[in-house]
Simulated scan of single mutants.
Amino acid sequence: MSIIPHSQVQSLEGHQATVDAVKLQLEDFSWVHLACHGKQDLIKPTKSHLLLYGGVLELETILCMPLSNAEFVFLAACQTAMGDAQLINESFHLGGGFIAAGFRSAIGTLWSMNDRDGPLVAEIVYSHLFREGQQAQASNTAEALLLAVDELKARKVPYERWIPFIHMGI
């Protein structure tokens, strides 16, 4: 059973998830879930990127895109909210970049996440947001992430597996 009705979801998997295809999704859709690899560039933060099929989507490109529909992005990728140990208050990362580009709310990770945790966290987040057929709101995403992290804690997973998930924005 799907949490979100199939009529409301467009999925790009494997070879479909090219840089150009993902850019089109970012421009067209208000809610985006990216399950891929992320890489933080501490020297040139705008070169931080998502690894997609056949290439990378750099933060610099995202910041220049027309994202008029942007509401919420779930970055189920490593290092999407990682800061810089030297410049803690001055770091710029993918999650913050998506907020700067126009998304109102984002979920990202401070460091590498356990591959088993991403799907569980996403399931709990979306189950809460789309419960009882309601229209999901970006303003409810922080609460949804809190419920997911609480579930990881209840399952007694080590703290380094639930701490990486953070919420940014409204």
Rank of each mutant, 00 (worst) to 15 (best):
D28G: 09
A35I: 10
T109H: 03
A17L: 14
L50G: 01
N89L: 15
G55R: 06
G38Q: 04
S68D: 13
Q40F: 03
G102H: 00
L63P: 05
F74E: 02
T46Q: 12
T18N: 00
V56G: 09
L34E: 00
L12W: 05
G96T: 05
A81V: 02
C64I: 14
H37N: 00
S48L: 04
Y53P: 07
A70V: 04
D84W: 03
C78W: 01
A81G: 03
P66D: 10
V19W: 06
H49W: 11
L63V: 07
E13D: 08
L63E: 05
A85K: 12
Y53T: 11
Q40R: 05
M65C: 12
Y53K: 10
S105G: 10
A106Q: 01
G83Y: 04
R104Q: 15
F74T: 02
G83D: 02
E60Q: 11
D28N: 12
T61C: 14
K39Q: 12
G55A: 07
V73C: 12
T80M: 00
A77R: 07
G97E: 10
G95Y: 03
L51S: 15
F74N: 06
G108Y: 04
N69S: 14
A76R: 06
L42H: 06
F72T: 11
R104I: 13
E13I: 08
C78I: 08
I62T: 05
G102F: 01
K47D: 04
F92R: 13
T18C: 05
S112G: 11
